[in-house]
Design a protein around this nucleic acid. Sequence first.
DNA 1: CCGCAACCTTGCCGAGTAGG
DNA 2: CCTACTCGGCAAGGTTGCGG
Length: 407
Amino acid sequence: MPSGGRVPDADFWENELEMPVRYWLEQAEDGRFMAGWVNGLKGPQVSVLHALLELTPVESTRQKKNDLRDKPELLKRFVPVGRFARSKSRVAVIEFAESVLALESMDLCRDGNDEFDVIALLFAIFDKNWKSLPTVFHLDKIHKSGFARMVLEKPPKRLDVSLGEFLTQTSLASHLARFDKTKNDGRISQMKSIIPRDGRYLVFIRRSERRDMLLQSTTVIHGFAPEWIILDFQEGAAKVNISSKSVSVPLEIANHIASAYFGRDVEYVNDREHSYTKQLRRLLSLLGNDKADELTLVEIAVDNGPLDGSPKIVLSRTEGSISSGIRHFEKAVGGIIEDVGHINHIKVLYRNKRVTLKFEQNDESDDEFVVRYSDHTLNEKERRLFEAFMSDSHGITILSTEKRNRR
DNA sequence: CCGCAACCTTGCCGAGTAGG
DNA sequence: CCTACTCGGCAAGGTTGCGG
């Protein structure tokens, strides 16, 4: 028997999952709509629903569909789930499914290519415990947006309470309420969830951001557009990765929470772990000669090129190395790859994705650079792999291009 | 029914720009 | 200077249409 009790109401779909659901709830009451809905289901989705409804096992997808068409009343609760699946990342759903579903349920969700069907997985997750869908909704976000890497310059010692014990829904909610009161900008922060993950703590906050309006029928409703703030606390809050739309308030919230935890005022600053010219020259030389394992140089942009008038130069290919192009250019005109300070950015192909790398020169020392990369193009797992790869193979610590600054 | 390819849409981000 | 807006790059999902 599925847990989670009663069926979720419209408010659950709309407020917790930010999904326009009323249309689908209405449609699901219509027999003709349901018949069409069943027709449109893919093989794995049919198998999962057939098993979830505990119908007498039959062989073909066609036969299972016939069985399902007789059960619109039992199926209608799955209709919004299909809509929820839209624009949810595969990685997020598969990873969560692996943590909650039995292996045999997972196997029903594979298609002919042995690939998981995301909608089928969500049907199973929903049936097992619909209250876990917000977790999927939240985790989906961490794969899509970039995170600014922030650190405390001198993290205080705090031994009596662990970060995990400190970070509870109720205590955070009251810290957020206090923050909103001091900030006094008419916006409200909502504590949505705290998800422990590999020794880190992901804190999801929804806060009203800019003033906005929408149409309900013909009436304008005034309010705020929501912003999602994700604080990824690590190493006992000595570090935090921040994802958000606005740049200053989320940092203030992180500072507020960390200050409450440590019992005194602390402030996060952008992480600035640097690399040296020599290391970067070595990396660029490997890339330029197609000798960097797992990486292909596909683009280089130089701000002050060797052409007359020093225009910006971009050498780029969609896929495939530009190394021969660079050699040709250097023979015909002059060097473009050896002066790290003049390089605006390069792009490398890593796991078939174009990742931008930028070398940010230190104001004080010409020899030091902060290496930043476009982390949002990689999903969360790939980011960790890429960072470890750059560190292990090239001794270069890379940080996200995302930054947060206090106004 | 299924797989595949081509094309379209969505969401995020950074660069550039106009207008205070 | 700051802010809001637009535009293009990019990944990845969605849709459609075709042939086995």
